[in-house]
Structure formats: C-alpha cells, structure tokens
Design a protein around this nucleic acid. Structure first.
Ligand code: MN
Ligand code: MN
Ligand code: ZN
Ligand code: ZN
Lengths: 147, 147
DNA sequence: TTCCTAATTGAAAATCATTTTCAATTAGGC
DNA sequence: GCCTAATTGAAAATGATTTTCAATTAGGAA
C-alpha cells in the first residue's frame, strides 16, 4: 500500500540523484507517512534522523519526489494541504476529515461521467482530479464509542 | 450558467453585508468571470470600475463570496489556482488547460465509485472533490486550424 | 432628510510559506 | 584516495496573504 523506502532510493539514484543523508531522511518520512504531509511536517520528522537537515532541502527533495511520481499534492477546500505518498501511477486520495489519515485508491471508473461531460461541453478531457474526504474506520469507531 | 449579479448583491445584503461600491465591483467581475480568477486578477479587473479599490478588500470580499457559496476554489496539480463562479450548490469545474476557460458542471453520478471505495476502505465518505482539465472547443478548433 | 454608529475601507506593516543565492561540503565515478 | 559536479544550509529575497488601525461610509433610526 505504501511507498517502499528502498525502491524509492533506488529510483532516486537511477535518475542520477545522489543518495545523501538528507534525502534518505526525507524519503524515510514520506515513505512511511500515513497522512498528508506539509514541507514543515516532513522537516520536523526528518530532523530526528538527520538533525542538520535544512528546510530548503526538504522543499527541494519533495519537488524531486513529486516529479518522480512518488508523492502527489493533496488539496482541500481551503488550499493545498501538502503531499501524500503515491504508489500508483494513476491514483487518488481519500483523506480522513478528522485525523487526516490518507489512503490512496486506484480504481476510478469515470468513463461514463467523463464522456457525458465531454459531449455536453465540447471539451476534450485530458485529466481528472478526484479527492474524497470522509471519516476513517478508527475515527468512526472512536465516535461510536463515545456515545 | 453564470452567477447572477443582482441575485448575488441581494444575497450579500440579506446576509447583513453592506453593499459598498467596492463589493459591487468585485461581484461584477466574479459574476461575469469566464475563467478561474486569482485575487490579483479580480483586483486588476475590478479596479476599472472602482479605481480606489484596495487589494485587501478583494481578499475580504472573495472570502465572503466563498462562504456564501458563490465562488469555489479551483486547484491544479501545482496548487491553488484561484476562484471560479459557482452557481450550483454542488458543482464541479472543468478547466481548459490552454486558455483557462472554466465551466461548471453539476451531474456527477459517482455513487458506485464512492460505494466501492467506502466498502473497501471502511471510510464513511463525506464529500468528493472533482475537477476536470481539458481543451475547450475554441482551443481545439484553433489547434485544428493551425495544421 | 439628517444623524449616528457599526461596518467597511485602504495603506502600511506584519506574517508566512516558498524560492533564490552563494560559499562550503560531499557522494560517488575514476 | 581524488576530483568534481551535485548538494547542502544559512541568510536574504520574494510573493502572496493577513493584520492593524485610523479614516470613511452604508444604511437603519429619528
Ligand atoms: Mn482517476
Ligand atoms: Mn459531485
Ligand atoms: Zn481518522
Ligand atoms: Zn481553451
């Protein structure tokens, strides 16, 4: 389900990127991330493994990872909420509105919908962008128990 | 298809907001907007009707309009791209990747998709967030003519 | 209409996230 | 181990958005 740490570091070097201590630390955090992560989040977590990490490097590394398709931006109503691990080439994210836990899902059969909108508007649709927000099982359980 | 100017000003005052010259100018621009608009875009256009308009007021007014559901944020891969008029209570946007022309569409029958994801993940899905990107008819035509 | 007041305004300052710059460090091919 | 281009972090720059605050104003009350 999650991005694999060593697969990612391999990908990085295959693309000519050096495997620095800083990049490893960032990849480590991203690969095991269970929620969407802002640059600051990643910075805070990765610094434990790599105290002399700079926020600048976090930004730079996240950009590389996004380019490689290992992470994807996640948005909510009020703006960009950060990045989430992306294992699937074409995946979408499902975010818990309470704890922000984030899951990737792949099947998104929207052909009919897309065809309909294309026919009606005359657009040629190139990409779609879908995000779901809801309550994760844990948060549902907690809410139920509280009553 | 578009948001109605006078309907919007009425809504504003019904919600206790004063109808200032500045707000009228912003609403005017938003109501007739054919593309997604950033605060700076709105500022530039609205200033023609209201030269002493301040950017601060544009931000404040856009926030109110978003609250009232008259506009909706639009995102692209690389971040928040601004606001688009939202006439439908539950609508989504279709954006031309070339000219940024933006159209709202309402039908989004995703029940099956949502049910499937919910069943698989255990999430209780509360909202979905869908955006389509493609080429608008005009841009398609131009591209075809160029060959 | 005129008055009054709370809401609204714009300029300037503050804030906040992100990007750029640049000199020092370092990964990894040789 | 050496060398060099890639990488790094601190600090400065940038750019968008928000806050502050004194002056203005819309619109209800008289
Ligand atoms: Mn999809
Ligand atoms: Mn929908
Ligand atoms: Zn949760
Ligand atoms: Zn177009």
């Amino acid at each position: 389900m999650n991005v694999d740490f060593s697969a990612l570091t391999t990908t990085l070097s295959q693309h000519g990127y050096k495997l620095t201590r800083q990049r490893r630390a960032v990849v480590e955090v991203v690969a095991h991330g269970q929620t969407r992560l802002s640059a600051a989040d990643v910075y805070a977590q990765a610094q434990r493994a790599c105290p002399d990490l700079g926020l600048t490097t976090v930004y730079r590394t996240l950009e590389i990872l996004a380019e490689l398709g290992a992470i994807r931006r996640v948005h909510l109503d009020d703006g960009c909420e950060g990045f989430a691990p992306a294992s699937a080439e074409h995946g979408h994210h499902l975010i818990c509105s309470n704890c922000k836990m984030t899951i990737e899902f792949e099947d998104c059969d929207m052909r009919k919908l897309l065809d309909r909108v294309a026919a009606r508007t005359g657009f040629k649709i190139e990409q779609h962008w879908l995000e779901l927000v809801g309550r994760c099982p844990k948060c549902l359980q907690k809410a139920a128990a509280r009553k």
